[in-house]
Simulated scan of single mutants.
Amino acid sequence: MRRSARSARSARSGGRSRHDRLGDTAIAAATVVALGSGVWLLGDGARTHTPPQPAAAEGSPDPGGARPAAHALVPSVPTRIRIPAIRVNAPLMGLALTRSGSLDVPPPQAKNLAGWYEAGTIPGETGTAIVAGHVDNTEGPAVFYDLGALKRGARIEVDRRDGSVAVFTVDAVEAYAASNFPDEKVYGAAHRPELRVITCGGGYSRTTGYQGNVVVFAHLTGSR
């Protein structure tokens, strides 16, 4: 998945002030580019399975079950993301914007690698932090292949360069068609530390590829 952006600035280290970074809404709607090709699905006629998609019950946050938000952390560059429920344990690279203004993506050949939008909010500080990764590559499933199977209440941990770990709790998991992606809902500003984890999904077509994106919504509930 790649979304266009209105403007760009060079990425800096975790010590940046909030005013030195792009706003949470810098990434805007225009183009979706697959975080996964689905090519491996076509390599064997007997292979018809596709990545799991979110259940409808996971798409609406349950206010009664939501854990209170933790206080924002001091900014520090994220280095790794772990999602125990779906066996994700992957290093994080910084993602900038391409020359055309789109969010870049991790190299597809690196199956166990995710990226974070380093010109935006740092995971753990107030605002909406963005993490993206491939669902597959030409060889098979990649880092976020099982993202659609995640449930509300699951834990996401982000290791940070200062040795701290930001702990997020999943609020909702949703799939959106590329033609109806809710940019403001996904990328919009937040008044607490929030996280979005994004990959391709929304079904697969042999002619047009993945039809949209799976998005996980989470908020900071602790640290260590």
Rank of each mutant, 00 (worst) to 15 (best):
Y210Q: 04
A178G: 12
T221C: 03
R18E: 10
G133Y: 10
S17M: 03
M93E: 15
D183Y: 14
G133P: 07
R67A: 14
D171P: 02
R87E: 09
V105Q: 14
N112V: 04
A85S: 15
A55M: 08
A190P: 00
E174I: 07
V131M: 06
G148P: 00
D20V: 00
R6S: 11
T169W: 01
R161W: 09
E194F: 01
R12Y: 06
C200A: 13
G120E: 10
R160K: 15
G120D: 07
A28N: 11
V131N: 04
G209V: 03
P108A: 13
A114T: 08
G64Q: 09
L41R: 13
F168C: 07
D24I: 02
H49W: 14
D104A: 15
D171M: 01
A177R: 15
H19K: 07
R161L: 15
G14N: 05
A90K: 10
A190E: 03
T79E: 12
L35P: 00
P91H: 14
I83Q: 06
E118C: 14
A55Q: 12
G124W: 05
T169M: 03
A46I: 05
M93V: 15
S102N: 14
A34T: 06
A114E: 06
G133S: 11
D146W: 05
E157S: 15
R47N: 12
A154W: 08
A218N: 08
H49L: 12
P78S: 13
V39K: 08
S100P: 02
P123I: 12
R21S: 07
T138C: 00
P68R: 07
V39F: 03
P54W: 06
W116L: 09
H71G: 09
A149S: 15
E139S: 10
D162L: 13
G23H: 01
G188M: 00
G203C: 13
R82I: 10
R3M: 13
A85C: 06
D159R: 15
V214P: 01
A154Y: 04
A70K: 10
A129H: 05
S102K: 11
A96G: 14
R152K: 14
A142L: 09
R18M: 02
G43W: 00
A11S: 13
V216H: 08
A46V: 05
H49I: 10
R3N: 08
H71P: 06
H219E: 01
Q109T: 10
S7T: 14
I83F: 02
N137D: 11
L42H: 04
V170M: 02
K111G: 02
S17R: 10
P91W: 11
E184C: 00
S164F: 11
F144G: 08
V33K: 09
A30R: 15
A177I: 01
P182D: 01
P182N: 03
G115V: 09
D136N: 14
D44R: 13
P123K: 14
V131Q: 04
R196V: 11
G212Q: 05
R6E: 09
R206Y: 09
L35I: 02
G15Q: 12
P84S: 12
Q53K: 03
R67K: 14
V32E: 09
G127I: 02
G38H: 06
T25Y: 00
R192H: 06
R47I: 03
A57H: 03
G94Q: 15
D104Y: 09
L22Q: 08
P78L: 13
A178T: 11
A29F: 10
G45Q: 14
A29H: 11
A96R: 15
